[in-house]
């Protein structure tokens, strides 16, 4: 299928989002770029299936998401690649202080089950509606809502969002004790 200039522009314009999604999903830039490239090739060879006027981004995300999962399943069969293995890989990368928060966040994100991670990314980061995300993942809207909810809950506990030092009664006690000593 011929990518006409307008379509080429549209595909190129989608690349930053596709990469951000693929990197967040897989935890690896190299693998993410391969995923994005495969997505573009797959999209181009299936252009006849794309309904003009519908959301090109959503269609591309569906392709990328499906590629990621089929690859994930394949890898799992080949080598035992237990979940969280890339969470530990991520930790190895030294980061300067400025990006420490994101690094913590990425590590926490990588600890989520893939279905929760992708739901949260699609809705919370990429800004798809619950309905669009459900279409992309091929599941019910309620399932997406539930996954997003569980993902947020898990992240909050992993990142100790509720552990606020300046306000908690424990830290007030600590501060008081320190004042005494």
């Amino acid at each position: 299928m011929t990518p006409d200039p307008a379509l080429r522009e549209a595909l190129l314009a989608a690349v930053p989002s596709l990469r951000a999604f693929a990197i967040s999903l897989s935890g690896q830039v190299d693998r993410a770029d391969d995923l994005v490239q495969d997505t573009l090739l797959r999209a181009l060879s299936n252009l006849h299936r794309f309904e003009p006027g519908t959301n090109l981004n959503a269609w591309l995300f569906t392709i990328l998401r499906n590629l990621f999962h089929s690859e994930y399943r394949k890898r799992r069969r080949e080598v035992e690649d237990p979940e969280g293995s890339y969470a530990s890989r991520l930790k190895v990368q030294p980061e300067q202080g400025a990006r420490l928060d994101f690094e913590d966040f990425r590590v926490a994100l990588a600890k989520l089950p893939p279905d929760q991670r992708e739901a949260l990314l699609l809705v919370g980061a990429q800004g798809f509606s619950y309905e669009e995300a459900a279409n992309i993942c091929g599941c019910a809207v309620g399932t997406i809502k539930s996954r997003v909810n569980r993902a947020r809950f898990r992240l909050a506990s992993l990142l100790n969002v509720d552990d606020v030092d300046d306000l908690g009664p424990d830290s007030m006690t600590r501060a008081a004790l320190q004042g005494i000593s």
Binding site: R19, A20, F105, L155
Partner: peptide, 25 residues
Amino acid sequence: IGDQLRAMYDELMQQPVPDRFKDLL
């Protein structure tokens, strides 16, 4: 959680598109 997620994601979105994609298309 939402703010952190978007901040992380935005940073990724800001990265320049690798040439391989322009070349490919």
